[in-house]
């Protein structure tokens, strides 16, 4: 093994999660290169959230393994968690704490050196200044999303995992968030893993897409290549082909 080759940012090896008789994730394997943006796509129940849960060590795999930056998440999660972060509209920050208080708490949890300076920087970058001293529970959906993103960026993570980062946002705010993620990745050479149902967003942000269906990865390629291969106009049509087993997806399955 060449010791100079850095490990993949994220690596799953025959990763499986079974709940009783149901296979939520069925022996998936993939590698995600450092500095890339990868989309994890699939319909509801495809296994995206469970896969993310296993990467974050929130869910224990039934079998197989997942490693982040070379560390096995079942054994060494605490050696790498400070270099990761996660944002999801389904996880909240304490409502009664102000945005500044919440960010201060998480800054300290992640061992950020100058928490006040980091919060000031994030407030400027993410346009939080007008409500940084307001209670988090009293913010609009768009403001909450920006605050959740600020929490996810508090430690300047090498690995940023996003679960539907622009869900329920108006097009202007969503576009603004995407722009910020692009800049963050470019400036920090960070690795982004993104689960989203917004195909336009995935086309814009992602270098690569992992398509999941019923717990398995059914396709894996760059968005443009997938569109070309399926003979479609955009990723949404590819998604529908795969989800419904029609068009090129059906043909390939038959072959």
């Amino acid at each position: 093994m060449n010791v100079n080759v850095p490990p993949p940012a994220i690596e799953a090896d025959r990763l499986t999660k079974r709940y009783g008789e149901a296979n939520a994730v069925d022996s998936i394997s993939f590698q995600i290169a450092a500095g890339s943006v990868t989309g994890l796509l699939g319909g509801n129940g495809a296994g995206k959230t469970t896969t993310i849960g296993m990467i974050m060590s929130l869910v224990a795999p039934t079998s197989g393994r997942v490693s982040v930056l070379g560390f096995d998440m079942a054994r060494d999660a605490y050696r790498v968690l400070h270099r990761m972060n996660f944002e999801s509209p389904y996880i909240d920050l304490p409502h009664r704490l102000t945005v500044r208080q919440n960010l201060t708490v998480f800054g300290r949890l992640y061992g950020v050196k100058s928490v006040s300076e980091r919060i000031a920087r994030l407030a400027a970058d993410l346009d939080l200044k007008d409500f940084v001293d307001r209670q988090s529970g009293k913010l609009s959906a768009g403001q909450k999303t920006r605050v959740a993103l600020a929490k996810a960026l508090i430690n300047e993570p090498d690995i940023l995992i996003l679960d539907e980062p622009t869900a329920s946002l108006d097009p202007d705010t969503a576009d603004w968030i995407r722009g910020h993620l692009e800049r963050y990745r470019a400036n920090n050479n960070a690795t982004l893993l993104l689960a989203s149902h917004n195909m336009g967003e995935v086309e814009r942000l992602c270098d690569r897409v992992l398509m999941m269906k019923r717990g398995s990865i059914v396709d894996d390629d760059a968005p443009a290549k997938l569109i070309a291969r399926y003979g479609r106009q955009n990723l949404e049509e590819v998604f529908l082909d795969i989800a419904r087993g029609t068009g090129a997806a059906k043909k390939e399955a038959a072959e």
């Binding site: 605490y78 050696r79 968690l81 400070h82 270099r83 304490p94 009664r96 704490l97 102000t98 208080q101 201060t104 708490v105 998480f106 800054g107 300290r108 949890l109 992640y110 061992g111 209670q135 430690n155 300047e156 993570p157 090498d158 920090n188």
Partner: peptide, 28 residues
């Protein structure tokens, strides 16, 4: 980029959690 190591025990993290609950008590 984030720090290369994270201590296996940190009073600062405990203090952060105490602050979180103190903020809450103070606000209610």
């Amino acid at each position: 980029m984030s720090a290369a190591t994270s201590p296996s025990f940190s009073f600062s993290r405990i203090f952060a959690m105490v602050m979180r609950h103190w903020y809450l008590l103070r606000s209610s």
